[in-house]
Amino acid sequence: MSTISIKCPNCGGELIFDPKSQKYKCEYCGSDFALDEIETEDTKAQDTSDSAQTAESGAGTEAFEQAASDDAEAADQGASAVVYTCPSCGAQIVTDQTTAATFCYYCHNPVLLSEQLTGEFHPDQIIPFEIDRKQAEDHFLDFVQKKKFVPNAFFQKNQIEKLTGIYFPYWVYNAEVDGALSAEGSKIRVWVSGDEEFTETRIFRMEREGRVSLNEITKHALKKSDQVLAEGVLPYDFSKAEPFHMGYLSGFYAEKRDIEYCELQDEVRGEVQKYTRDMLEDTIQGYTGVHVLSDHIRTVDEHWAYTLLPVWTVTYKGANGKIYYYSMNGQNGKTFGELPIDRKKVLSIGILIGAIVFVIMLIVGYLFFT
């Protein structure tokens, strides 16, 4: 299995994408580079195979055969696991089928799994992280500490260290839609003359038609991720989307899609038809009541873009065994998640409030009856 490692032209260390500067930084010599500065023949990401890297690392034939054996075993198990070789230290990296960027467990260098994002799985675009880890931690602490009943363990140091930057896969849908609508609108006028009340109802026939441009309808494309969690951090500013480049993944985790756009077509087209119908109906104003007689919605042009979007996320296992998720938009900082509740804190505050109320009642009673 092929891997990619982006090397520093100055010292050969690993380059990591820095959201704050939007450049690639070397943590060894402190150099930084723009994207076009690392794409020369000498500094381009090195694409290597497992066998070549195993030989270079000195692991020998035995390690290579073991890797092949692990690959075959993964295939026998329904390909639930995939084995790669770290291009930096030669260690074996075991991931699942949707992982596209990770870290070596031994040397901790970022590893980009190139075969996961090639061919039909090559993303059309990516929105790079704009919020770095320090900013993400500050956002996380600010968000959590405002919640009075969250367990203290949820924002302790070891929990904050679990905060992970991940590129999640999404399908982004754009469409041009023609719509036509026929409706009847009623206008009712009521007046009183003498002792009699009169009602006049006038019926109007209306036709509406037009073309609607719908852009950036975003759907998550990973089965193992929670849909509410994945879509709770939306929206993103797609004007900042860039053509996909593997370098943006360096220093982060990334997942590849396992949901195809054809699986989402019926859902999205239903949403598009409803939205177009609602827009046409909203142009009808000034009537007492409106009754839609018929409508015709037709998609003229549509486009699906496979997109990777940045998310900071952390999980927490509560005392009840339930897994709680927190996520944050890696571009604009929008937060989403279900936080655990410390029942002891709730009980303690309840007892304290009860005690205060009891004391106040005693004082009021004493003053009232004496």
Rank of each mutant, 00 (worst) to 15 (best):
F155Y: 14
V233S: 11
H291A: 10
I160L: 15
T95R: 12
G289H: 11
A72K: 15
F143D: 11
V359Q: 01
E14N: 09
S57W: 12
G60L: 08
L117S: 14
E209P: 10
Y324Q: 02
T85N: 15
A74V: 05
G119V: 06
Y253G: 15
A175P: 04
Q331S: 06
F238Q: 02
E137C: 05
E281P: 06
H291I: 12
A79W: 12
A91L: 11
V212M: 09
R205I: 05
Y326C: 06
T313D: 09
C29Y: 01
Y325D: 07
P87M: 11
R269L: 15
T118D: 13
R343A: 09
E200F: 07
G210A: 05
T335Y: 03
F168C: 05
C8A: 06
T3M: 05
V233I: 15
F369V: 09
I356W: 00
P87I: 05
E231V: 01
S327K: 05
E281C: 14
E14D: 15
H291R: 11
E41H: 07
E115W: 11
V83L: 10
I160D: 09
T54L: 15
E231I: 02
I6L: 14
G318H: 00
P9W: 02
G60H: 02
F198Q: 07
I363M: 03
M279T: 15
K23Y: 04
S193Q: 14
N109P: 10
